[in-house]
Design a protein around this nucleic acid. Structure first.
Lengths: 207, 207
DNA sequence: GGTTGCACCGAACGTTCGATCGAACGGCGC
DNA sequence: GCGCCGTTCGATCGAACGTTCGGTGCAACC
């Protein structure tokens, strides 16, 4: 089904990859289309055959990356049942993709607000899926906690998404160790905070 | 000692506050000095009486904010001794300042890479202090863990600093609840991951 | 009351920005 | 050999950018 990849597709992917590198290094608004032309080996005007505006270019990078990440996540989640394993899969899925595609992941994390209008709405729809999935897993992991679910969910994604600000492949552990570290901290931390039964009134106890 | 605040100081602070709002809303590179002139009520050229360049303006915002945050942190840390309390103080210090100064905190978190040269070096020096302080606390909290200290430290700051991407005061809990949630997750998660004594070889046990 | 210096501004500079336009290239069907 | 169409590019546009320059008002001081 992916056998019909034309030279057009290949070149578009190359342009998106080069653009992600430029956006990651200089930031979206500080990067110029001329920078991308230089990095991709295509002329300034030639680029506009592949996208209609700079903003659409950013959208293509983000939407494609989030789509890939989401597809992989949903496929991998089907293979496990315990919430602990699901959370491990989610964290590892993110971090593995991150370490392998650092430029793209930085653009996805750091340039979230640089899109406007329908571009932003479409990307936010995909991001919402990630939030919902994590929320469901946390709820399975510890249904009886008094920790705020929304705060806990974004605390989790904060741990993960902040990576682009500090991670350096040559000195830091690989993605598996990162995922293991964050998974252990978060599972232990979230699962360990159950509501203290001694604090519950009799009315709350099962009759 | 702070009684010698001149009208110049007052106006500079007002300009910095207005600039932080503009930078937070539009992003540093996407915001123009003209936007800041409009937001602060000072003419375009009049602004340059208070700073020499747009980049220095960003530096002033970041350096001043980090300085305040660091001063408060070190003062509050002196009042507690248990590592659990120290970590709680650190998290609460960050989040309280964040919620009270959202624009400034967003600029500090999101525009870290927008500075160059000596500006960036000076800001990074202050940020390093935060990393070192957190690392020392985590080490006191659980000296026997096999969790990577650097990864754990940035996981903690990721939880905290990511706040600017999702927090909305009108729907989310206040800073105290945020701090309590994150503190409980992280303390339980980090302290709970001790090296399993059953996994240790005899050579590692005290003789 | 002339001089100094701080605070501030309108106008303009040179440069870079995202985007467009018309022309030209090359392979393929006819 | 000719026309077509997908692809590419040099030349160029108006707008916006950060910064600078010459100058103004005004309070303080001698």
């Amino acid at each position: 089904m992916r056998l019909d990849r034309t030279p057009y597709d290949e070149k578009l992917d190359a342009i998106l990859a080069a653009s992600a590198r430029v956006f990651a290094e200089k930031g979206y608004h500080n990067a110029s289309i001329r920078d991308i032309a230089r990095a991709s080996g295509v002329s300034l005007s030639g680029l506009y055959y592949y996208f209609q505006s700079k903003e659409e270019l950013l959208y293509l990078i983000q939407d494609h990356g989030l789509g890939t990440l989401l597809d992989r996540l949903e496929e991998r989640l089907q293979r496990v049942v315990r919430p602990e394993d699901k959370l491990r899969v989610l964290i590892r899925n993110h971090l593995t993709y991150f370490v392998s595609n650092m430029a793209q992941m930085k653009v996805m994390s750091h340039e979230a607000d640089s899109l406007t209008g329908e571009f932003k709405a479409q990307v936010n729809r995909k991001k919402r899926r990630f939030v919902d999935i994590a929320g469901e897993i946390l709820n399975e992991l510890n249904p009886n906690t008094d920790l705020d679910l929304r705060v806990s969910t974004f605390a989790l994604y904060g741990m993960i998404n902040w990576l682009y600000t500090w991670y350096r492949a040559e000195r830091d552990p690989d993605a598996d160790v990162l995922a293991d570290t964050m998974t252990r901290i978060f599972i232990e931390g979230y699962r360990g905070n159950k509501v203290d039964p001694a604090m519950m009134s009799e009315a709350m106890l099962p009759s």
